[in-house]
Simulated scan of single mutants.
Amino acid sequence: MEDGEQLDVTVTKFLDPAKGADEFNQPQSGKKWVAAQFQLVNTGSKAYSDSPANDARAADTDGQHFDAWFGEIAAGPAMTSDLNLPAGDKALGWIVFEVPSSSKIVTVQYGLNSGFAEQTGQWKVS
Rank of each mutant, 00 (worst) to 15 (best):
P27E: 13
K104Y: 06
I95F: 13
P77A: 06
G111L: 11
W69F: 15
F66Y: 15
E72W: 05
A58R: 03
L40R: 02
V96N: 03
L85G: 11
E72M: 13
N84W: 04
V99R: 09
D62G: 02
V96A: 06
V96W: 04
D89I: 04
G93C: 10
A75Y: 07
A75E: 03
A36W: 04
S81G: 09
A68F: 05
G44L: 07
N42A: 07
S101D: 06
N84H: 08
A68V: 07
F38D: 05
T80K: 03
Y110I: 03
D60E: 03
D82G: 02
T107I: 01
A91E: 08
A36N: 09
A74W: 05
V106P: 03
Q37T: 03
F38V: 07
F70W: 15
Q26E: 10
N25P: 00
S45T: 15
K90Y: 00
N84F: 08
W69L: 14
N84R: 08
D62S: 12
T61P: 00
Q39Y: 00
K31H: 09
A87M: 14
G71P: 04
K90R: 15
A91G: 01
Q37R: 10
A56Y: 06
Q39W: 00
F66I: 12
P86F: 10
Y110W: 10
F70C: 09
A58H: 12
L92Y: 01
D50G: 07
N42E: 11
E98S: 10
P86S: 07
R57Y: 11
N113Y: 04
Y48C: 10
V99Q: 08
W69T: 15
D55P: 02
D67L: 10
I105P: 08
N42Y: 06
V96L: 02
Q28S: 14
G76F: 07
L83Q: 06
S114K: 08
V96Y: 11
V41L: 13
Q37W: 00
P77H: 01
F97M: 06
T107P: 00
A74Q: 14
K90Q: 14
G63L: 00
F97G: 12
N84S: 13
P86A: 15
P86V: 14
V41A: 08
G76D: 01
A75N: 04
L112Y: 05
A36H: 08
N25M: 12
N84A: 12
A91R: 02
Q39M: 07
N54G: 07
T43Q: 11
S29F: 01
V106D: 14
G76S: 04
G93K: 06
Q26P: 02
V34M: 00
W94E: 10
N42P: 13
P77L: 00
V108E: 10
I95E: 07
